[in-house]
């Protein structure tokens, strides 16, 4: 067991290092911080709202921001290994495919966490200007982190499917967009009015949306169902990644 842990740690270490030896990490962090700032202060109207809260001006953008930025981190995870041929090295090492899959995922998730932590100036700003409920902000951060993990895990699947990073990026954006779409009012209205289906179907579809589950976190609610929702997307996606990688090798 300790062996499994140290193998995962070795892979996490390598992956994280490789983020920072290439420009990807820096470009990503800068763009992420720039966009969050822009969305919060310009489009989100942080000052105009006059509220000591980050829910609307800051966190409500996250599902949309992640839509494009998270697949950009995830797209290279496996497609790069396949393109370089290092997959063959990795899978002939004395480690299980699981350790490699989990290691690579955790590394990219940690990188996302780091980026999220670097948005701290906004927390300082809102605390300086007023008296926000910092508990709510913390749960919203946790929710955002879990949601990012779910997006990342989906990107893992698409990057395992192809050796072309662009294809991987586009497919994962589409997949993640569907997770957002399911929770939009327009979709539930469509189900209720046009399809004439019962409210149960609208609820069911809505429950598959990251928006539905993220909104609880934004309001400061740590709902175990939402946590399970995000974690199950992650576990399911990593499992699927494993199946896809195995089927490639089985030919």
């Amino acid at each position: 067991m300790s062996n499994a842990f140290s193998n995962v740690r070795t892979i996490v270490k390598r992956e994280l290092k490789s983020y920072f030896t290439s420009p990807i990490a820096y470009v990503f962090i800068v763009i992420f911080l720039f966009l969050t700032g822009f969305l919060t202060f310009m489009l989100g109207g942080f000052f105009e709202l006059g509220q000591a809260s980050l829910e609307r001006p800051f966190f409500s953008w996250h599902p949309w921001l992640y839509l494009f930025l998270v697949p950009a981190i995830g797209m290279r995870l496996w497609s790069e290994e396949r393109r370089l041929g290092t997959l063959e090295l990795l899978f002939t090492m004395p480690i299980t495919p699981w350790q490699a899959i989990v290691g690579k995922f955790v590394a990219s998730w940690l990188f996302l966490a780091l980026t999220l932590i670097l948005t701290f100036p906004i927390v300082i700003t809102v605390n300086y200007l007023g008296n926000p409920d910092n508990g709510i902000i913390l749960t919203a951060y946790i929710g955002s982190f879990l949601m990012g993990g779910a997006y990342l895990a989906l990107s893992c699947i698409t990057s395992a499917m192809t050796r072309n990073q662009v294809v991987s990026f586009i497919i994962s954006v589409v997949l993640c967009f569907m997770l957002i779409l399911a929770g939009l009012p327009a979709v539930s209205t469509f189900i209720l009015d046009v399809l004439g289906a019962g409210g149960w179907l609208a609820d069911l579809v809505g429950n598959f949306s990251v928006l539905t589950h993220f909104s609880g976190f934004e309001k400061g609610v740590l709902d175990s169902r939402s946590i399970i929702f995000f974690l199950s997307i992650i576990i399911f996606s990593l499992f699927t990644t494993g199946v896809i990688l195995r089927s490639h090798r089985a030919g």
Binding site: N7, T10, K17, T21, S22, G85, T86, E88, L89
Partner: peptide, 25 residues
């Protein structure tokens, strides 16, 4: 094992790469 075409992680240094493999071993 030396696979065909000798793959290696291109973003690592030679030392870093060997260190990584040794650690996995």
């Amino acid at each position: 094992y030396l696979p065909e075409n000798a793959p290696a992680y291109t973003d690592m240094t030679v030392y870093g790469f060997l260190d990584f493999v040794a650690e996995l071993r």
